[in-house]
């Protein structure tokens, strides 16, 4: 039978190389990656890529670095599935495949000139780091920047050294909290929601940007609304399982939206009525 050759598949990968790895916690590692031919990934903060290991599979992973870093990009990977566990066995020099970037990132243009209250829970810091770095690299384009970060224990804190740097800056306010801790932790202990009431902000010019585990959203949003931040100024990024990244495979569908194409970043006002969103 005559055969047709499909040479322009959307599933073809771009070659990339790991240039540096940094173990952040026993479960999480940061990978710095360079695309073949030293091309820029050219992503927006908040977008994600499909990381591909032949013979193992693909996994959607958000880009953890700002596009202002042009020669390479970073992803922060928690070892939970086939691909992510296999990634952890790789080292600098190893090749991986990349598709993307995909999805709609944070509405940076709309953030410009306004204040930001960034709320990160656990691994939610990974996509938010792309935003934070971008804001710091273009600091005068934005208003006040306030960062709240919550983790389970002090050992789970990601990017601890960078957090210390941010803490020392005069143009960012940051607070960290852990769910539980041993004696040597000097910071606050409790849920991230307890930090929000104390933040001084002007609600009409503040965007609340929230990324964290699903269970966190409901409670954080409630606190942000209590601070009178309008619903359309609350920005969320959703984690969903994705196979194609191109609005087809159906895995990431939340009612009538595809997280991979319509999101992963959404305004709260657009999704608040969707029971499948939270």
């Amino acid at each position: 039978m005559e055969k047709i050759v499909i040479s322009e598949s959307n599933y073809q990968i771009r070659k990339a190389r790991i240039v540096r790895t940094k173990k952040l916690t026993p479960l999480e590692t940061l990978f710095e990656i360079v695309l073949d031919g030293d091309r820029s990934l050219d992503h927006e903060p908040g977008q994600f890529i499909m990381v591909s290991l032949f013979g193992i599979g693909e996994a959607p992973i958000s880009v953890a670095s700002s596009p202002t870093m042009r020669d390479s990009f970073e992803i922060c990977v928690r070892a939970v599935g086939r691909v992510t566990k296999a990634l952890h066995a790789l080292d600098a020099g190893d090749e991986i495949g990349i598709r993307g970037p995909y999805g709609k990132g944070f509405p940076i243009r709309i953030f410009e000139g306004n204040d930001l209250l960034i709320v990160a829970g656990g691994l939610g810091i990974a996509p938010l780091r792309s935003l934070i770095q971008y804001v710091l690299d273009n600091r005068r384009d934005f208003g006040k920047a306030h960062l709240l970060l919550g983790c389970k224990t002090p050992q789970d804190i990601l990017f601890a050294d960078e957090l210390d740097q941010w803490r020392r800056r005069m143009d960012v306010q940051s607070e960290y909290i852990v769910d539980r801790a041993e004696q040597d932790w000097t910071g606050p202990v409790g849920l991230i929601t307890t930090l929000i009431p104390g933040v001084h902000l002007e609600p009409e010019r503040t965007f609340g940007v929230v990324v964290g585990p699903p269970v966190m959203y409901k409670f954080v949003i409630k606190e942000l609304l209590a601070k009178n931040i309008p619903e359309h100024q609350i920005i969320l990024s959703f984690e969903r399982h994705m196979k194609c990244g191109m609005g087809k495979c159906g895995r990431c569908q939340i009612q009538n939206i595809y997280t991979c194409q319509d999101g992963p970043v959404f305004r709260y006002s657009a999704v608040k009525h969707m029971s499948e969103a939270f």
Binding site: K3, V5, I6, S7, S9, Q12, I13, G97
Partner: peptide, 8 residues
């Protein structure tokens, strides 16, 4: 990863 031949 090479191109794929499919039924004609």
């Amino acid at each position: 990863a090479g191109p794929v031949g499919v039924a004609g």
